[in-house]
């Protein structure tokens, strides 16, 4: 006697339901993972407004740090509206931006002014946008000539320049050195785009945006949106978000941040400069002539 063959097995509804749930779960989990793995890219906005002093340099460096700490920021637009300021803080920011550029593109958008040290920072970007009437350039440096002092019977120093750290001849060389460095930086950064000789540039003239474009001091006349689009394109991103990094940092520092505390800085509201300490400046400021050091 032989037994009858087994009846063919049929997937149960229950099984199909299980598979469907599995697919759905996979999709949901995949979506979650994708958000984590591929966050929406963003263009971060950082800003330099007003004078460049140690405090404002620190403020901008905090913004750069925030860019690095913000996932998805794939490009940065640096908005500048500055007459410049002290030499060392300017160079400090410049070097930080150069470092950032090794990671993500930085595009500069000039509002009213990028003069002197402000322009020094502008050339740190890969592309520079400005308005037709923005004030741009004023390449150069200035400072208060120190007094030459001799020796006397009251004060004894260990070296001839111990008290002054410089003298008038040295100061002249220092000014010349910073000027050459500034010009070289502009020439190196702008490269073939520059249509003005370094000699002409060294006059220290400031140009309106349209003229600056003709001279190759900037790349485009355009708005901040144009700069954002350019930055996104350089970063290879679309459908990006825009993150106001500066606003975030400002909020974080709200309780301790005060521009009026900056020594030598012009009051953002009145433009008046309460005091200008001795130093060397990459600075252009119409208010300077009416201010009191």
């Amino acid at each position: 006697m032989t037994s009858p063959p087994p009846a063919p097995t049929q997937p149960s509804k229950k099984r199909w339901l299980l598979v469907a749930l599995l697919i759905l779960a996979a999709l949901v989990i995949g979506l979650q993972i994708s958000v984590w793995l591929v966050p929406q890219p963003a263009v971060g906005i950082i800003r330099l407004q007003g004078d460049i002093w140690a405090a404002s340099a620190e403020y901008l460096k905090l913004q750069i740090e925030e860019v690095r700490n913000t996932p998805g920021v794939k490009a940065v637009v640096l908005e500048i509206d500055s007459p410049g300021g002290e030499v060392t803080p300017t160079q400090d920011i410049y070097l930080e931006i150069q470092k950032l550029r090794a990671e993500i593109p930085v595009v500069v958008s000039i509002n009213s002014m990028a003069a002197s040290g402000g322009y020094y920072l502008a050339v740190s970007g890969e592309a520079i946008f400005a308005k037709p009437s923005s004030t741009i350039g004023n390449v150069g440096v200035w400072g208060f000539i120190p007094d030459d002092i001799g020796v006397n019977e009251t004060v004894l120093a260990s070296g001839p320049f111990k008290l002054t750290a410089s003298n008038q001849a040295e100061f002249l060389r220092e000014i010349e050195g910073i000027k050459q460095e500034f010009l070289s930086t502009v020439a190196a950064s702008r490269g073939d785009r520059l249509n003005i000789s370094t000699t002409e540039l060294s006059q220290g003239l400031a140009y309106p945006g349209r003229e600056a474009l003709r001279l190759g001091l900037i790349d485009h006349l355009g708005s901040r949106s144009d700069a954002i689009e350019a930055a996104a394109e350089m970063a290879g991103i679309v459908n990006y978000a825009i993150v106001d990094i500066e606003a975030r940092v400002y909020q974080q520092l709200l309780e301790t941040y005060s521009t009026t505390d900056w020594i030598g800085a012009a009051d953002p509201a009145t433009g008046q400069r309460p005091q200008l300490p001795p130093g060397i400046y990459l600075l252009y400021d119409e208010n300077l002539i009416g201010g009191t050091p």
């Binding site: 996979a26 999709l27 993972i33 993500i104 593109p105």
Partner: peptide, 21 residues
């Protein structure tokens, strides 16, 4: 299915890589 959204987002958001100059 797990990777599909990631690929989709990547394609949605990115068109290339930034090459630092």
């Amino acid at each position: 299915l797990l990777l599909l959204p990631t690929a989709g987002r990547a394609l949605w958001f990115y068109r290339g890589n930034y090459q630092p100059p």
